[in-house]
Design a protein around this nucleic acid. Sequence first.
DNA 1: ACCTGAACACCGTTCAAGT
DNA 2: ACCTGAACACCGTTCAAGT
Lengths: 188, 188
Amino acid sequence: MVRQPSINAQHRPPLSTERIIEAALQIVDGQGLGRLTMRRLGDSLEVEAMAIYHHLPRGKEQLLDGLVAHVASAPAEDTPSRPWQDVLRGWAGDYRGRLMAHAGVLPLVVTRRNPAALTTTVASLREVMRRGGIAEGAAAAAAHTLLGYVIGHTALEVRGTNEDGADRVVDWEARFTAGLDLVIGGVR
Amino acid sequence: MVRQPSINAQHRPPLSTERIIEAALQIVDGQGLGRLTMRRLGDSLEVEAMAIYHHLPRGKEQLLDGLVAHVASAPAEDTPSRPWQDVLRGWAGDYRGRLMAHAGVLPLVVTRRNPAALTTTVASLREVMRRGGIAEGAAAAAAHTLLGYVIGHTALEVRGTNEDGADRVVDWEARFTAGLDLVIGGVR
DNA sequence: ACCTGAACACCGTTCAAGT
DNA sequence: ACCTGAACACCGTTCAAGT
C-alpha cells in the first residue's frame, strides 16, 4: 500500500482571516464565548493553534476584535423612496436579530475598544436622519440614542429578565418595537 | 526574641463574602476584568486563593454574579413630592455614573444570567411610573426601554466612539440627557 | 510563506490535610 | 469551621524548527 502523504495536507482550503473568524463565530454561537480557545479554534480548522498567529499576529485580542467587527458593523441601507422612520425601524429590527443570533459576542460589542465597528453603523443612522431633514446636531445625538437603545434593550432581552415583578410573561418583540417607536417618534 | 505566631494570623478581619466582593471590585476597577483571577484576589485578601471557595462554593461564577448584583442592583428611590419624571431623570444620572465608575463589570451586567440584580431595578422604575399615573402595561414596557437605553448608551460612552464621522468631539453628558428626555418625554 | 512541537508562565478547581 | 498545599487539566503565547 502506498503511503498517504501527510493526511489532509492538500484537500483543505488554506487558512485565512475570514475562515478563522467564521470558525470562531461558529464556536461562540454554538458553545458560548467561554469555550472559544485558540486550541479549540485550531482543532475546528484542522490546524495547530499556533498557526492562527500567523494570520492574526495580535492573537486572541485581534480575534475578538474581528468578531465584533463581523457582527456589529451593519450600517443602515438607505432607501430614499421609503420614509426615513421606516428605514430606521427596519434597520433596528435587523440589528436586533443580528445581535440575538450572535448573543455570545454581545459582551464584546459592549466593551471592546474597536471604534471602526460601531462608527460606520452610527454614521449610517445619522445620514438617514439627515436625509429626513433632521439638523446635524440632533441627528448625531439621536443616532447614539437609537443605537444605545437597540443594544441595551437587546442585552436585557438576551439576559431574559423573564419575570416582571408580577408573573406575566414578557412579549419582548412588542416591548422592543414600543420603545423603538418612542425613540424614533421623539426625533425632530 | 519571642517567635511570632504565624504572621498576620490574628490582625486581619475574617474573610467574608462582602470583603471578597469588595476586593474583587477594586481589582476590576483598577486593573480591568481580565486581571481578576482567583489567585490575585486571594493575594489582595492575604489568603490562599482556595480559601475563597469556602465562602463562594460556586467559585468564580458566583464571584462574577456577586459583582453584577453589587453594581447593577440600584433601584430608584421614589420621592412622591417630586414629579415622577424628575425622579427617573435623577435615577438615570446616578445609574450612569455607577456604571461608568465600574465600567469593567459592564460586560457582565449585559450578559450574565443573574435575574435578581436587574429585576429589582426594573421593578422600581415601573413603580415610579405607576405612581405617575402611567398604565400598568405601558409602565412595564417603558421601564425596560429606559433601563435598556441607560445601559446601552453608557456602554457606547465607555467604549468611546469618540469621533463622529466628522472630527467633532462628542459631549456625552449632553447626548445622554438629550436621549433621556426623549425616552421619558415619550412615556404616557 | 506557512505551519508544527515543545516549552513557559499562567489559569480555575479538586481534594486531602492541617488547625 | 476555616484555611492550606499540592496536584490536575487546562489556558495564551514564544520560539526554534521544519517544509
